[in-house]
């Protein structure tokens, strides 16, 4: 069976790990990188805002699932990202910057974030994740589509562990999915339960609250 073994989340004021029961506040524009990332994130400042949120949520999800990702080592974990507006903000930032230069110079460092798959790609590079990486979009709840696809990839033995999640304008949530036996003790909830929560909660914050409440009540 496919289970959720960790959930990491972050918004503009708080971040947390659902299974570990971590929920901490932080001051605006003062992301506590040392607390979130197990090893230093090279050039974190050059990332666009979606990539910063995505990589932070993924760091928290991996920590929640007890997956250690030391630098220079690689592992068979894939990442599916999703979001309501794709790379729109980075598209605007890149093209406005180019227009401001008189349509002569553009910046490669802004251009690379105009790909919707780049935030998940940044996470793959930092954490050494060699599984499938792509961005998924569609009508309705795209995080549910991302989770469903991640589950299919594991069942098809295309990757042993998958990260799937969504980054919105002000928040991000990522899930760790893996194949487990019925008796596995490191499971947060079943894939079916997670999908049920996603179908009934549209906002990321609502979704996280529901998982946190579930943990407290041990209903999973």
């Amino acid at each position: 069976m496919i289970s959720i073994t960790g959930i990491g989340w972050i918004n503009q004021q708080e971040y947390g790990c659902v299974m570990m029961g971590i929920q901490e506040s932080y001051a605006v524009d003062a992301l506590p990188k040392k607390k979130i990332f197990s090893h230093a994130f090279k050039n974190f400042g050059r990332l666009d805002s979606v990539s910063k949120m995505t990589c932070s949520a993924i760091a928290l999800a991996l920590k929640d699932a007890g997956i250690d990702c030391p630098p220079e080592s690689k592992r068979d974990i894939g990442t599916i990202g999703s979001g309501s507006s794709g790379s729109l903000q980075s598209d605007l930032d890149y093209f406005r910057d180019y227009l401001d230069s008189g349509r002569t110079l553009s910046r490669g460092n802004l251009f690379i974030y105009t790909l919707p798959s780049s935030p998940a790609g940044e996470a793959a590079i930092h954490f050494g994740l060699q599984g499938p990486v792509f961005y998924i979009a569609g009508p309705g709840n795209s995080v549910a589509t991302a989770l469903r696809t991640a589950s299919e990839i594991i069942l098809n033995n295309e990757a042993s562990v998958m990260l799937a999640g969504m980054t919105g304008p002000d928040s991000a949530v990522y899930f760790v999915l893996k194949k487990t036996s019925d008796a596995a003790g490191d499971v947060l909830c079943s894939y079916d339960y997670a999908m049920k929560v996603m179908e009934t909660n549209s906002g990321l914050d609502d979704m996280v609250r529901e998982f946190l409440n579930s943990m407290k009540g041990s209903v999973v």
Binding site: G78, I112, S118, A124, I125, Q130, P132, V133, F134
Partner: peptide
């Protein structure tokens, strides 16, 4: 058959 992977190495 199909296979997807990532270098986990560099952005560009």
């Amino acid at each position: 058959g199909w296979g997807l992977s990532d270098d986990a190495n560099h952005m560009t």
